[in-house]
């Protein structure tokens, strides 16, 4: 209670690093929220900066594969939805960048690491969008996977990250729903449209399953992230939730899942999948995915071409401030 709380903070000041960390972890276990100014282990801060930066970059780079279809959306209805969605992704990137900054790193610094290739973003955005059906698949599968992950993160231990996730989750359902509508229409359309949906599904199914990260026993960050209350569920748990949800959904659409080993396991009540092609995942992470170079080049070019806008805004602000000072 009140006494205890006062006692705790007084104690913290006199504590050794090890004791402080222990105290911090007991706060995590008690599901307390950590706020920017509070003491945190350096490792907690590092993990958050790494993970949140990657997350923000993913939102920003994620605009590219979808932006590719804005000019060719098949109807005005589809086009306005896609424009709104891509704008949302930019907004989501900003929410998370804003949250990363509370950890004492500047946005410029974080963004520079994306541009110089030292920070990562989700491997999924290094795949091309070669047909209109891909826009449907991204909404349904990629955003669907993101929702599962972000719903968990909305309850994570770091306050600013959790709050950013809440905002994002509110908007993400529109993304998923518009994607599912596209897939649903294609699947109920002509034979050619249905084939387009199946071809696209075949390409996206496995890469989206990889979005949840390596299997638990191979993931080097999961255990620590869970100890810190940043992740509340393991990679495999989240992936299984996604599989169970979407095997049924694919069947409803009339799509065939490109996995000959897939079966429903009566004992566990879960769908069991065949082996995930992780070699492909590692190749994409190493920079050898179909679009890695193209994505990064696009972001560097946008940053360069936007330089005059930033400079003009600064010059204008200075001029206006001077004029005001004179008045």
């Amino acid at each position: 209670m009140v006494e205890g709380h006062f006692g705790r903070t007084t104690r913290i000041r006199a504590m050794s690093e090890e004791q402080r960390t222990k105290d911090f972890l007991s706060r995590i276990d008690a599901k307390e929220t950590i706020e920017p100014k509070e003491w945190m282990p350096e490792r907690y801060r590092e993990q958050l900066v790494r993970m949140m930066s990657q997350h923000a970059h993913s939102e920003i780079v994620g605009m590219l594969p979808e932006g590719n279809w804005i000019t060719r959306a098949p109807s005005l209805r589809r086009k306005i939805a896609l424009i709104a969605k891509v704008q949302d992704e930019a907004g989501h990137g900003h929410y998370i960048y804003s949250a990363v900054e509370t950890l004492g790193v500047s946005r410029e610094e974080v963004y520079r690491k994306l541009l110089d290739g030292s920070a990562k973003y989700s491997h999924i955005f290094n795949y091309p969008t070669t047909s209109w059906a891909d826009i449907g698949m991204i909404g349904w599968l990629v955003d669907g996977a993101a929702i599962i992950n972000q719903t968990m993160l909305a309850r994570c231990s770091y306050g600013p990250y959790a709050r950013a996730m809440l905002r994002i989750c509110k908007e993400e359902n529109f993304h998923k729903k518009q994607g599912m509508e596209i897939v649903s229409r294609l699947c109920r359309g002509t034979a050619a449209q249905k084939a387009m949906a199946q071809e696209s599904f075949d390409r996206w199914w496995w890469p989206t399953l990889m979005m949840f990260g390596l299997p638990d026993e191979k993931s080097k960050n999961t255990a620590e992230l869970m100890q810190f209350g940043i992740k509340l569920r393991s990679n495999d748990e989240l992936r299984q939730r996604f599989i169970d949800m979407n095997v049924k959904q694919a069947q409803e659409f009339g799509l065939t899942i490109p996995d000959p080993d897939l079966y429903f396991d009566e004992d566990s009540g879960h769908w069991q999948i065949g082996p995930i092609p992780w070699e492909e995942f590692f190749e994409v992470l190493k920079g050898n995915g179909p679009c890695n170079r193209e994505r990064l080049d696009a972001k560097i070019r946008a940053h360069e071409e936007g330089r005059w806008v930033r400079e003009a805004a600064s010059a204008f602000a200075e001029k206006r401030a001077k004029r005001r000072a004179k008045q």
Binding site: E101, S106, R107, E108, Y111, R112, L115, D116, I300, H303, E304, R307, R310, A313, S314
Partner: peptide, 13 residues
């Protein structure tokens, strides 16, 4: 490579 170091950090609000 873009040299963002030379750019001023825009104020935070």
């Amino acid at each position: 490579m873009p040299d963002t170091d030379r750019e001023k950090e825009t104020p935070l609000w």
